[in-house]
């Protein structure tokens, strides 16, 4: 118990310490990775812990990003209410699509979520007059001052990303250790048995979708706010595949996995793009090798090889 808490709080503290020592480039990268890791954390709650593979999470990420961005550009909202608007947009979208998609299972669930995300992407393009379609729109620095903190400044951006990431990490740790989180794992392992034990499986799966969508949306909203841009490409299929990659790489069903996976993949692409233009080739090779030799992901392997206590 205490070593679990120590490990996670240690990571949080380490990331805070990084703020003071990292060179500018990696400082900026880590801020980005932390925000994206929240997206992966959201995805992991559904995929890793509940066992539901969604191929349409970009819908939630984009709902947050556009909920936030449009609140600012169309309604003139301040950043804090805009973030809230993004979160609510994500929760509502997740609530509706979750209720529909959960009527299906397995491959059909994957496809339905994919279809909903595709419809969402096209909807952003369709309302091009306010969303500016694929071009997207800029959120000006003056609109990104949260409680007096200028989020366009690298230091505040890093600290904001760190605060968000810490909150999401601790929340996900608390969730999986909470009885509710444990029933999610029970559903993943054996849905029929969970149902026989008297759990309302359908309701719990829906709540898992909503939590997962909410965290993803928060990540999308924060991404738009911190980096000053919202665009339709964030709603495309590729951004539904990314969290899957990150989570699998880091380790599905582990609390630290999403962060490790996001960080690893980010630098993998960043470094290989200097060697070849076909840098996604390496991502492909890594994925194949992972499935062959480390299907549990990096953190999952660590857990398998001795650290069995890792949550």
């Amino acid at each position: 118990m205490s070593r679990v808490l120590a490990l996670h709080l240690g990571l949080v503290a380490l990331l805070l310490a990084m703020h003071f020592v990292l060179p500018a480039y990696h400082h900026g990268n880590l801020a980005r990775v932390m925000v994206l890791a929240c997206y992966a954390i959201g995805f992991n709650i559904l995929f890793g812990y509940t066992g539901l593979l969604s191929l349409g999470h970009a819908l939630f990420f984009a709902a947050g990003m556009y909920g936030m961005g449009l609140a600012i550009t169309q309604l003139g909202a301040a950043p804090a209410p805009a973030l809230l608007a993004g979160l609510i947009a994500g929760l509502v979208v997740a609530g509706i699509t979750g209720a529909l998609a959960l009527r299906t299972v397995g491959v059909a669930f994957m496809i339905v979520t994919l279809m909903f995300a595709q419809a969402g992407y096209l909807t952003i393009l369709y309302f091009g007059d306010i969303t500016h379609g694929d071009e997207g729109f800029v959120i000006q620095p003056a609109q990104r001052v949260l409680w007096g903190l200028d989020l366009s400044d690298p230091s505040w951006r890093y600290l904001a990303a760190w605060a968000l990431f810490s909150a999401c990490l601790i929340a996900s740790l608390a969730l999986v250790r909470h009885p509710f989180g444990r029933t999610l794992t029970a559903i993943r392992e054996n849905e029929e048995r969970a149902r026989l034990l008297g759990y309302d499986v359908a309701l719990r799966k829906w709540v898992a979708v909503v939590i997962s969508g909410g965290i993803s949306a928060l990540s999308g909203a924060a991404y738009g706010l911190l980096f000053g841009y919202a665009g339709a490409s964030f709603a495309s299929v590729q951004y539904s595949i990314f969290p899957l990659l990150w989570v699998l790489l880091g380790g599905a069903g582990t609390v630290l996995g999403p962060f490790i996976g996001t960080l690893f993949m980010f630098y993998l692409i960043d470094l290989t793009s200097g060697i070849t233009t076909a840098y996604m080739l390496l991502a492909g090779v890594v994925l194949v090798l992972l499935t062959l030799f480390a299907p549990q992901g990096l953190v999952g392997e660590v857990r398998r090889r001795g650290w069995g206590w890792l949550p």
Partner: peptide, 25 residues
């Protein structure tokens, strides 16, 4: 990987990128 459904999806996503990027190169 013994045609495990989920691992196959991941492996074929990997294959997707390998084929696509090898074509690009």
């Amino acid at each position: 990987i013994d045609y495990d459904p989920e691992r196959t999806i991941v492996a074929t996503i990997g294959l997707l990128y390998i084929l696509q990027q090898a074509t690009l190169m």
